[in-house]
Design a binder for these strands. Structure first.
Lengths: 335, 335
DNA sequence: ATGAAAGCGCTAACAT
DNA sequence: ATGTTAGCGCTTTCAT
């Protein structure tokens, strides 16, 4: 019950100084005589005093806590971004409140509002589905928000990511050059910004360059998951498709295994390129040819950007999207 | 700068009531005349008032935030536990501060102390390496701590898990029955409670039952990771080992691929059983025979237990470990 | 270099 | 049913 009974006041009395001095010592303020500092430090140690971060947050209006929204913590793509975020956050002494936006009955908006209510100093949002209402919430937020590993069409919401359009184009062009006539595109919802304005245009650009007509039925929408990829294998084969660019690695792994289990040989009869380059891409057999991207860095850079925004308050320069370089690695799922 | 300028006081004034009444409305206290409630609610909506959780936390000494320690967010085992934790936490209106204990320079103890400083209402600890000093920290904590997916040898620290000793024994016995003379055990550090007091004894029990002499050089220690498993493949083959029980799925997947890449056929020439039954076990080819366990439930039950402990204060009944049922699923990595 | 005192925004007795 | 008031534990002017 007597949670945290030793307060700054206890220390002050015990050390014969005012709370202000104790506060200064705790916060590393230089205006304290060395002897006083040592005396206070000794008492702090003796009493095992630990500052109450909640009280500190209320008084200073800074919680040294950020909010991180993640659609699915068990998806390697987001987990690897989160690792980068957390490492840098730790480095800057921030904690992160992590919330699954896919969780039971909690819309992303509620989740974000709750984060703001907890007075987080900033938010990193992961996920592709950023509806207008959510963007509005971000815009009127009093703390900075950074989107990691995706993007919105609101120019005022900074993001850290790769060039998804160009990456998609490269992958699809590669598949086309191998003589595949029917190249599928497997993505999440077509209505998300990343798919509507980046991946689908990239896909179309590749087709155009190869003088292949766009066929809408070759675009597959499915939530990112192994199971969904697996299920689509038969459908694709039935349609005469011989290659696919899959944005999510779990889906790509599912597709691969679905094909293999249907006795379709990869890469001989079907080529796959995946988009995220998580560990999964090298665990499957055959391994997955992939667009490569520095996932950890995307998270880490997003967090770095957030720290800047949290201190600068209003530097519009910082709102530019940060585009990291992507690459391409041929593995066993392409010829 | 004017972060959260509308406070409970603003609402009170605007609605011509006292802050206490507003507080009652916000907290769903029944002692408010319906008309008053409506009036206040209207003002809240109009002003878009959102209670400041930090102030609330300071005044009430409850933050509705729990701390969750995870060794590696990109390891499916922990990620799936975390998913269960988060779902139940959300259900009970708790947020979770997630901290990677493997992160740069942050020992588990510091991480936990920081969590307490943030006044979390409880902690769920994941990870196998729980040294004495950390256990001491848990014991003197003023808020409850639950270990999920592992255990300590301190009877006063509740845990939610499966019977690792029995599970290991079953797996190893299975391998022995298939005529394997040299069965390896691949685990993390032998000094962790889970390995020292559960898995190794389970391994030994199986050997004893089959009248096979324990050979210490068949026990391999390596941090859970795909790479470590992969590297060990050659060593194991060189030693004439023909089967292994691997506690972690990433390591098992690595071992499997390492063997395959060395032209050792699984399961014909080498059998593998893995211990965690994450999604990885069905993604590899061949798929991995596995001890099955309800990972999501382990997390979910741990969180449920924590909520009980957080409200009951001191019910010693609740400190009993919760042992969930495990199973065994034969897949393609055993004959 | 140090202290006094006023909050931060809320909850929780205690009155009425 | 509603209001008054005293904190919660700290930071931060403002004095000295």
């Amino acid at each position: 019950m007597e949670k945290q009974s030793v307060t700054i006041y206890t220390v002050a009395r015990e050390a014969n100084v005012s709370m202000a001095t104790v506060s200064r010592v705790v916060n590393g303020n230089q205006n304290v005589k060395p002897e006083t500092r040592d005396k206070v430090l000794a008492v702090i140690k003796k009493l095992n005093y630990r500052p109450n971060a909640v009280a500190r947050g209320l008084a200073s209006k800074k919680t040294t806590t950020i909010g991180v929204v993640i659609p699915d913590i068990t998806n390697d793509y987001f987990a690897e971004l989160a690792l980068g975020i957390d490492d840098i956050a730790t480095m800057y002494k921030y904690n992160m409140i992590l919330t699954n936006s896919d969780a039971d009955g909690s819309s992303a908006i509620k989740v974000v509002q709750n984060l703001f209510a907890k007075q987080v100093d900033g938010v990193i949002f992961m996920g592709h589905d950023i509806e207008d209402q959510l963007q509005a919430e971000f815009s009127k937020a009093t703390v900075p928000v950074v989107v990691a590993g995706s993007l919105t069409n609101d120019k005022n919401i900074p993001s850290v990511r790769i060039d998804y359009e160009q990456a998609t184009k490269e992958a699809v062009s590669f598949l086309l050059k191998h003589g595949n006539k029917k190249v599928a595109l497997l993505i999440g919802s077509r209505e998300t910004t990343i798919n509507k304005f980046n991946r689908i245009p990239g896909y179309k650009a590749a087709l155009k360059q190869a003088h292949v007509k766009f066929n809408d039925s070759l675009v597959f929408e499915a939530d990112d998951s192994y199971e969904n990829g697996y299920k689509l294998a038969k459908q694709m084969v039935k349609k005469g498709i011989t290659a696919a660019f899959v944005s999510d690695d779990s889906s790509a792994a599912g597709l691969l295994n679905g094909l293999t289990d249907s006795n379709v040989k990869v890469p001989e009869d079907f080529e796959i390129i995946t988009g995220n380059d998580t560990k999964l891409a090298t665990i499957t057999r055959p391994t997955l040819t992939s667009i490569t991207q520095p996932l950890y860095d995307v998270g880490a850079v997003a967090m770095r950007l957030l720290t800047k925004l949290m201190s600068n308050d209003n530097d519009d320069e910082e709102k530019q999207p940060v585009i990291l370089q992507h690459g391409f690695e041929e593995r066993q799922s392409t010829r």
